[in-house]
Design a binder for these strands. Structure first.
Length: 571
DNA sequence: GCCGTTTTCGGCCCGACTGTTTTCAGTCG
């Protein structure tokens, strides 16, 4: 039995929920939540650390007690403290807290007075107007419960970064057009370029807040106004996406930007640093008593703490403060560093555009090269190429190369890794390719051990080059297959292979933490779009965002090399 | 429950909005 970090984090979060309903010390609750957040994000397996008898109390937010609980979870799969709590409080109350407007206090009251512990009872009680009779509840709350119950059935997901990009731009334009408005910024997880965002946080400056808010709630795509004050408002768009607007005086803009960009963990760390100096740090600025020490720009604020500017993508409290103190923040890769795309499809298999169209689109983007990586024979669904068709494609590419030079089309394929770890083309044909992307497209449900061994075996093939979309996950659709990435990364180092950051918005595979792990082991990454049409080539920006969140610099990414150096590296 | 260059005890981020109050608790980000 392998207990995954996410499972440990989940148990701690559940315990925190129950303790909160019970009315336990809120700081104790926070301790469980902090630990859960750290554990869920940690790239290293805690189960492995327990087995290796490492001292878990060295991890942030993990003390003697939590270390013990983690050991118990890893060895038994259970958290007895949680099971004890669950005897006093129905577990189902945790679900009820997911409803916006219902927190621990209200859930507890509903349970104790009306014996409500599930959504059905809640709905019945609201419809019979039993809830509005309770002290602290009213008709509006009752109404809201009914609306939210309906909504929670419909959607409960986060949005892909790429999916909110257009609406973010549209809202920015709309707000900019309001007279007097300036400095429109979409902050939050959008600015940190997280792979998914839960909502949009927009910041504007304007002398009169209420005028902007009035205009904001009239944005044509607004379906519900959730709150509307004089400096902030929350609405829901018809797509379901929630948008928060904050109106801030220009003089406070830096502090507000910092505050609303987050992450929460990053903000709390900086605020703790302020507290230690006897200062107060809120969305208006850093204050010593009544005196304001910094507020205008984020640079000014970081400078006050004797830190260099920390790019939004790094603000997760995952070591960026320590690196900043030592002046060792990475010089993050930028979109302009990318010289070519090493994973694209054409009409020869499941792409929508021809070889020539893909090449022209790449040239238009200013690239120096592109690798054509159509699928191979094992993938019947998309008419994967057998060796005969692939050699015809190679000849076609060689001819086309004479025309498009100095641009270079690299001959390649997205080679299937078979269940037993063999590649599905012979070495003879693989030897003729400039580069390969090797990926898993079948047998996702192998055990972690078997899946890892499958890839390890494939990696021993001398023509293996890039491991494509290494976890196979599809955001909001499919979990990653079980695979030990740390072992894979070590093997990649040993054999001189690369790992892909697949920039398809629904893949974003590898994730940020494993990008960073690869970098720490000295393994280079490749940022590719896996484009199935020429328009998708522009998705490269999302891959670059992911790389930045993974602390990657230009030199950590293969396809920042100019053509001649790339060809040398591939030898 | 965690943590420490004010501390091993006594702190722990903080303000806006809503609804139900009649001065504030609860929730949220």
């Amino acid at each position: 039995m392998t207990v995954h970090n996410k499972e440990i984090a989940d148990l701690f979060n559940q315990l925190a929920d129950l303790l909160e309903i019970e009315g336990a010390n809120p700081f104790r609750v926070r301790a469980y939540r902090n630990a859960a957040r750290y554990i869920a994000d940690a790239p290293h397996s805690l189960a492995e650390r327990v087995k290796a008898k490492e001292d878990l109390t060295e991890l942030p937010g993990i003390g003697k007690d939590l270390a013990k609980k983690i050991e118990t979870i890893v060895t038994t799969g259970h958290l007895p403290a949680l099971e004890r709590e669950a005897k006093n409080i129905p577990h189902a109350l945790i679900d009820m807290m997911r409803l916006p407007g219902l927190g621990p206090k209200r859930v507890k009251k509903l349970y104790e007075i009306l014996n409500i512990n599930n959504f059905d009872d809640l709905k019945n009680a609201a419809e019979k107007h039993n809830i509005s009779q309770l002290p602290g509840f009213g008709l509006k709350t009752e109404e809201k419960i009914l609306t939210e119950l309906k909504r929670i059935k419909e959607t409960n997901k986060r949005y892909l970064l790429a999916d909110v990009e257009d609406i973010a731009n549209e809202l920015t334009d709309y707000l900019n057009a309001i007279p007097g408005v300036s400095n429109v910024t979409v902050a939050g997880s959008f600015r940190r370029r997280c792979e998914t965002v839960g909502d949009l946080d927009i910041l504007v400056t304007n002398k009169k807040g209420s005028e902007v808010i009035d205009a904001f709630v009239k944005f044509p795509k607004v379906s519900d106004i959730i709150s509307q004050g004089s400096t902030r408002s929350t609405v829901r768009l018809s797509s379901g996406l929630q948008v928060d607007l904050r109106v801030v005086p220009k003089i406070h803009y830096g502090a507000a930007m910092h505050y609303f960009t987050g992450s929460k963990a990053h903000n709390i760390e900086l605020r703790n640093r302020a507290v230690k100096k006897g200062w107060k740090f809120n969305e208006y600025g850093v204050y010593k008593g009544d005196e304001c020490l910094a507020r205008k720009t984020e640079h000014e604020i970081y400078h006050l703490f004797k830190l260099p500017f920390i790019p939004p993508e790094l603000r997760e409290n995952r070591g960026e403060f320590e690196a900043a103190e030592k002046n060792q923040l990475p010089h993050l890769i930028e979109l302009a560093d990318i010289r070519g795309d090493l994973h694209v499809h054409t009409t020869e298999t499941d792409g929508a555009d021809t070889l020539e169209e893909m090449v022209q689109a790449a040239i238009k983007l200013g690239y120096e090269y592109i690798a054509i990586t159509d699928h191979t024979q094992n993938l019947k669904m998309v008419r994967g190429q057998d060796e005969k068709r692939l050699s015809q494609q190679i000849k076609k590419i060689q001819k086309l190369n004479e025309i498009v030079a100095p641009f270079r089309i690299l001959t390649s394929a997205e080679v299937d890794i078979l269940e037993d770890g063999r590649l599905d083309l012979s070495d003879d044909i693989l030897a003729q390719l400039d580069i390969t992307v090797c990926s898993i497209h079948s047998h996702f449900n192998l055990s972690e051990k078997d899946q890892t061994n499958r890839v390890l075996k494939a990696m021993k093939n001398p023509f293996f080059c890039i491991f494509g979309h290494p976890t196979g996950r599809l955001l909001n659709q499919r979990e990653p297959y079980a695979i030990d990435l740390e072992t894979i990364i070590k093997a990649a180092k040993k054999h001189g292979h690369y790992l892909e950051i697949n920039a398809q918005p629904s893949r974003m595979d590898l994730d940020d933490q494993h990008c960073r792990m690869a970098k720490e082991y000295g393994v280079k990454l490749v940022i590719s779009t896996d484009s199935h049409s020429k328009n998708q080539l522009r998705n490269i920006q999302f891959g670059v965002s992911q790389a930045r969140r993974g602390w990657l610099e230009k030199d950590d990414v293969l396809n920042t090399l100019p053509l001649n150096k790339l060809l040398k590296a591939l030898k």
